[in-house]
């Protein structure tokens, strides 16, 4: 009997936790369709008006453009550089590779605010003007560790006899990579790139510090909040949520990630 109660209690706590964590997200999506300026229950009717309002704003299109540029550049950049790093790491002796992994992983563990401050200090010391370029560079620092982690794991269980065979049959190291390694790890690279893009797309703190002018989608949300709460923010939030979830889900599916 007691066990029964304990188990049910655990279930209830679990459900409450999930509700507590997802309710705000559900509210954002729900109110983005709400036919009222005030965000209160009960919801009177559904409308696409807030999306229409959002899409008619000039600053939305500018922010979207910047976000797309940054996201794509970060996705491509961190996949290429991260893969190169991973290929070196798997060739290292175990102790050296463990050290390299923790060094590369540092930006992943650092508070974003500290990372942003550090980068800002660096860029101003170097006299680099803030722009989308600095945003991309900053995003690379914290998205690359994920790529390195994922690609290293894939390369570690890559059958090296395949590479040896390719070399043996006349392939130079580059040809062996192009015709054997790359086609086999391509899904992993795709997935890793998408995860990097998802992380980049919804970053606010680091982007905020690095952005010289203009907006990305997250900084646009923040800007809109300062001028007053308007339900079209909910529409924007819902769109960002959709994009992030979409790329992450696609990434997990492509990489065949199972927990």
């Amino acid at each position: 009997m007691k066990q029964h109660v304990a188990r049910n209690l655990g279930l209830v706590v679990g459900i409450l936790t999930v509700v507590f964590m997802t309710a705000p997200l559900v509210l954002v999506v729900l109110f983005s369709f709400n036919d009222s300026v005030v965000m209160t229950f009960p919801i009177k009717g559904l409308t696409f008006d807030w999306y229409r309002t959002l899409l008619s704003r000039d600053d939305f299109w500018g922010a979207l453009r910047n976000s797309v540029i940054v996201t794509l550049a970060v996705g491509a950049g961190s996949t290429v550089i991260g893969t190169l790093a991973a290929m070196v790491i798997v060739r290292m002796r175990p102790r050296v590779s463990a050290l390299a992994m923790s060094l590369f992983g540092l930006p992943m563990m650092m508070p974003p605010l500290v990372l942003a401050l550090a980068l800002l200090t660096l860029f101003s010391a170097l006299g680099v003007r803030l722009s989308l370029m600095t945003v991309v560079l900053a995003h690379l620092t914290f998205t690359m560790p994920f790529v390195i982690l994922i690609v290293t794991a894939r390369l570690r269980d890559f059958d090296t006899a395949m590479l040896d065979s390719a070399r043996d049959l006349g392939a130079s190291p580059w040809t062996a990579f192009r015709s054997v390694t790359f086609p086999i790890i391509r899904p992993t690279l795709f997935g890793a790139g998408l995860i990097a893009m998802a992380l980049s797309l919804d970053d606010f703190i680091i982007t905020f510090f690095m952005l010289g002018g203009g907006n990305t989608l997250p900084t646009l949300v923040w800007g809109m909040l300062r001028t007053g709460v308007d339900p079209s923010i909910n529409a924007l939030g819902a769109l960002i949520l959709l994009a992030t979830l979409g790329t992450s889900a696609l990434a997990l599916r492509i990489t065949g990630y199972r927990g």
Binding site: D159, A161, D164, S165, A166, L169
Partner: peptide, 29 residues
């Protein structure tokens, strides 16, 4: 290097290319 030698090897784990058919594997070299 191996690609410049007139020797060819059958590896212990075979090292077959999973993204190619049997014919493509055989014709690779």
């Amino acid at each position: 290097p191996p690609e410049k030698r007139a020797t060819n090897m059958v590896f212990q784990g075979y090292g077959l290319f999973p993204h190619m058919s049997v014919r493509q594997n055989i014709g690779y070299g």
